[in-house]
Design a protein around this nucleic acid. Structure first.
Lengths: 134, 134, 134, 134
DNA sequence: GTGGTCTAGACCACG
DNA sequence: GTGGTCTAGACCACG
């Protein structure tokens, strides 16, 4: 499960985990019944505290997004919400807009942003492996 | 000034104010030299504490986005980058990476992101560009 | 960490803390990576409010002088300038101007100031330089 | 009376005025019995509020440094304290040290500081007139 | 244990 | 009227 945590962000780590897992499920990267990494595994993967990871899973369970089966682990719940392609594009556009607002205030010319984005995509896909879901 | 605060959000209230004011400026809904509501006004409008409102304004002043004139109020700054180009690019890359993580989680293929970005840039520059409603 | 706070001073308490911590680091009484007292400890040592102590640390973090590690504490940052060279020179010139105004008011002839500065530089680099007590 | 006010400083304006007038008197740039500019004059010279200027004079009178003669104006008090040359040099060195601490944190190499100082001296004396007290 | 956020309320500085 | 500082105290996030 590929999550990216920003320790310096004003958004608490547990909330970052919750949001990103919800996105993975809502966009069907994670499917109903699929098993999630254990709390310990997640904590060690993300280098966060076990309590923090456990809290994130508890929030997700409270929201009905995942289910805990005692002694077996955590699984994506059957009734977890799904987003349409339109909804997912809309959300991505909001994220891109946030980056553009940042570019404006940092006085980086708009014309330079696409090249920067391409560079970050190359870096990110190289790191994650070129073929994402073969 | 029309801000939407979500008290239940994991994002601190002061950070929500900061982000939204930055967006208003980037979209030129607020322009250089324009006066912002007073700390007290903002606090009572948003039903938040005066200290919280003041904190948001102080963060904005730290970022060089607004200026305080003693006894007069807060105004949108004329701007001129305070950070080194390296630092500014670094900050923008972080924002772009957040958008890319979002794209990954939303299962939007990486190849589609640049086109989406170009579209948002066109929308943003059209709305905010030098010629306003030509 | 030995700080002297003057509650009666016109200089805000948090600013006194910031200035003195910066001086301690510049004189290498505090070195990169070294841990600072916790917010609570500092507050009780100096008999100031926890919020005031936290505010001082936050200013120092904003200036890139210290780093916060969640749940662990605050540490002297390794450093690397965040501001553009122009901005840094501008800030230094302001500090030099303050000293020159002081010289003027103290009726120390301007011609004497450079020699005094050289002496202070020699003293400071001897105390803080790479070879410590050779 | 040549005072320099920094509106963005954390030190209140009235305190800056008080400190600088005390320095002028202590170093004999202003002598016992000498008349100070009126509150209105000072306020308009420094572009500060009349109340602020008045408050500074009141503080100075409370400290016994100046005297108000009703209908005539403000004068340097007879018993105002004087500093020795040693004391004045000591105070200037403190101001220079503050600038050097700033240079350290701004990562401006110590070798560059003297040239910057010379430039500021040239700028400041040119602005104030080459012969200061002919 | 660590730091961060928020509130309520007092008081100051400045216009 | 404006913003800034500080305190006391609650509660949260993180280890």
């Amino acid at each position: 499960m590929d999550l990216q945590i920003d320790a310096a962000s004003a958004i608490p780590i547990y909330a970052q985990v919750v949001d990103q897992v919800k996105s993975l499920i809502a966009s069907r990267a994670l499917r109903a019944g699929e098993q999630l990494p254990s709390v310990r595994e997640l904590a060690s993967d993300l280098r966060i505290n076990r309590n923090t990871a456990a809290r994130a899973y508890q929030m997700l369970e409270n929201d009905g997004v995942i289910e805990t089966r005692h002694g077996q682990g955590c699984f994506v719940a059957a009734g977890a919400p799904r987003w349409s392609r339109e909804e997912r594009i809309r959300r991505l556009e909001k994220a891109l807009d946030r980056a553009l607002v940042e570019a404006f205030h940092l006085e980086v010319p708009m014309e330079e942003v696409p090249a920067l984005l391409e560079r970050r995509i190359r870096l990110m896909t190289r790191r994650a492996g070129p073929a994402r879901r073969p």
